[in-house]
Design a protein around this nucleic acid. Structure first.
Lengths: 232, 232
DNA sequence: GCTATGCTTCGATCTTCGTCGAAACATTCT
DNA sequence: AGAATGTTTCGACGAAGATCGAAGCATAGC
């Protein structure tokens, strides 16, 4: 009778539905690449089982693969997948969000964490807001965010050297250079895209942020705190 | 050892993963309320089965319920759930998106459709862009979109009467009055929120848009086409 | 009250799929 | 070449859960 589009998203959901796969995907949300064995160990399953899971995720395009010798490194396929996982978490956690984020265990995660390869949490949202408010990034007609000529000042204030700045301007014409990504702890956008990735790497490089023992949490150093107060 | 947060989103994903539940959710994406029996029939399962499914969705907060006599009407819990489903679809369909949307069957869906209770598709994206570009909506400091005093002109041009306009301004202080929602066919934001819902109802009222036989597709009438050309 | 209709609970069945042991395959190192 | 390590394939087992028939509740209308 009526052509009812069999929802293809059920397949994707079923891939995320399995606890082992979900845990692997959650690990990969940090943006780092992990080998099959690492992932298996991290979620407490045998390598065989992990292998089947990973090949399924690969087939569905949720993860991508970089083979290196006898190792296979997996990462999330792209930022859309990361966005999907964060959106899923937003819905899954919303009842308990307010309470949960204030517990000591989650506090650092709320302040700053990695989402895919960029900065999320309070600091990530603040960054997103500040860059738009100060006109460092402007929304182009296609919804993406772009650098302006005057953005150079901010980049210099953030201690980027001239070579790096030139590179950024060159990359800024590419698709998905910078755009908003929903933050599930803040329910607001934070900054995503290649530019966001570069910024995060830069902050880590300069020692303004450091990774913590907790999977995805980031802490700002004293120098970083001072810097961020100026920049955001 | 390390406190690894068992990903709660796996539970949500598993709820969407079942084909029957997924089809029901897809139906509810139109924003309309459907009774349990209707849903059962629409996805070709018995009422008993549908009942168990719906109670699970209810428990998880994916749908909400309005009981009316011996009928129970279900709808998506809120716009976050709609956003989740659209994000899921974005990832699920992305390989075939470009091709798929151009097939005759999907063409009307791409032009305009309902997403939860608001307008999506090309027309929805155009509306979002136009309202921001013309300054009818401005982004507040918390990321939400708000009306301005000068927005009254646009509302009048859209044939809203003074009483309705007053109501809109009163509502505009509420949370989630207007904000962006990712559109999976356009990969851009369209307008969501209470304001977007009102606009869509208004367009249908005025006969500028009409529902089609296809589930969620909307078609614009000649009068509507002329109107939208002016407004967007 | 009784009957019809819509929804839910219970029990049983059947399918799907995650899991691991065993063995194979691939790559690197000596 | 041979050993060690990382990953994959195969087969079997077992648990989870989707489904439906039958019976039970609840509401609306007579």
């Amino acid at each position: 009778m009526t052509a009812r589009p069999e929802p293809r998203f059920a397949r994707v959901a079923s891939l995320i539905a399995d606890p082992s796969r979900a845990r692997m995907l959650a690990l990969l949300l940090s943006g780092e690449a992990r080998s099959a064995g690492e992932l298996a160990h991290a979620v407490s399953i045998t390598p065989q089982t992990a292998s089947t899971h990973l090949s399924q995720l690969l087939d569905a395009g949720l993860v991508k693969l970089r083979a290196q010798g006898r190792h296979k490194y997996f990462m999330l396929a792209d930022a859309d997948v990361a966005r999907l996982l964060e959106t899923l978490a937003l819905v899954a956690e919303r009842d308990s969000v307010a309470a949960r984020w204030e517990t000591p265990m989650y506090r650092p995660l709320k302040y700053a964490r990695t989402c895919y390869c960029h900065l999320a949490g309070e600091l990530g949202v603040k960054q997103h807001l500040a860059l738009i408010e100060r006109g460092v990034l402007v929304e182009a007609e296609d919804g993406a965010l772009a650098l302006r000529e005057t953005s150079r000042e901010w980049l210099q204030a953030a201690h980027f050297d001239d070579a790096k700045i030139a590179t950024l301007y060159r990359e800024s014409t590419k698709k998905r250079f910078a755009y908003g990504c929903m933050d599930w702890s803040m329910r607001r956008d934070h900054l995503a895209g290649a530019f966001a990735t570069t910024l995060l790497e830069h902050y880590l490089d300069k020692g303004w942020l450091r990774k913590t023992k907790t999977q995805r949490a980031l802490a700002s150093t004293p120098a970083g705190a001072a810097m961020f107060a100026k920049l955001f």
